[in-house]
Amino acid sequence: MTVARLLLPLGLGLLAACAQQPTATVTLEEDQQSRCPLQLQSGQTLVLSLPSNPTTGFRWTVTDAAPQVLRSLGPEVYSNPEDAGMVGGAGVSTWRFLANIPGEGHLVLAYQRPWETDVAPEKRFDCQISVK
């Protein structure tokens, strides 16, 4: 009987601690740029997905990866979810970052043709990141 009395408060304490943990992954898409500035907790993963069509010559280039607060978890991953196997179809470019160090930075990407160095990017994605 005393073991059960000890386990109940311990179980409730564990549930409360789990409820206060931040969501492990934060997903952000181009149309959600209004969520910026974005506040992350150290240890959270940020997944950024932007529409892309490399067959047109346009590519997203990371111009500032907020290295003072974020750590890249790998290279860009391109997928073509809508028309799999269809040549020239649009897809999605995805990056994963770890909120690594407390502080502030900007995650900035430009959508442009790499050889058009004197032309303004077709699109920009700019998000201020704050890690606590």
Rank of each mutant, 00 (worst) to 15 (best):
V69A: 04
F97V: 11
I129D: 00
V77Y: 01
D83F: 15
Q33C: 04
E82H: 05
T2N: 05
D118W: 13
Q128K: 02
W60D: 02
M1I: 00
Q39G: 14
V26Y: 00
P102C: 04
L48A: 01
M1S: 14
S93P: 05
N100W: 13
L109Y: 13
A120Y: 03
T56Y: 00
W60T: 06
E30D: 09
W60A: 01
T25Q: 12
H106R: 05
D31T: 14
Q41W: 03
P121A: 12
L50M: 07
I129Q: 01
Q44M: 09
L109D: 06
D83N: 15
P121K: 03
P37N: 11
P102V: 08
G11H: 10
G11W: 01
V87W: 01
K132F: 05
G91R: 11
R35K: 09
T23Q: 15
G43M: 07
L107Q: 05
L109G: 07
A90I: 04
G88E: 10
Q41C: 12
T25D: 02
I101Y: 12
A65D: 05
P51Q: 06
V47R: 14
E116M: 15
Q112K: 12
E104R: 13
A110P: 04
M1N: 11
C18H: 07
A4P: 00
A17E: 01
A19D: 00
V87N: 05
A84F: 15
Q128L: 06
L46W: 09
T2S: 04
L8H: 04
G103K: 07
R59M: 01
A4V: 10
S49R: 10
R71A: 14
E116P: 02
L6K: 04
G11C: 11
A120T: 07
S49K: 01
A19P: 00
E30T: 01
K132M: 06
F125A: 08
A19E: 06
N100C: 14
L28H: 03
L38V: 08
D118L: 14
L8N: 02
S93I: 03
E76Q: 15
S72L: 08
T63G: 05
G103C: 13
D31L: 09
P51K: 11
D31A: 12
R35S: 04
L6H: 04
G13L: 11
L15H: 09
E30V: 09
L10S: 14
E116A: 14
E76M: 15
Q33H: 06
S79T: 15
Q128D: 06
G88W: 03
Q68S: 14
H106C: 06
Q39Y: 14
V77N: 12
E29K: 13
N100T: 08
A120M: 06
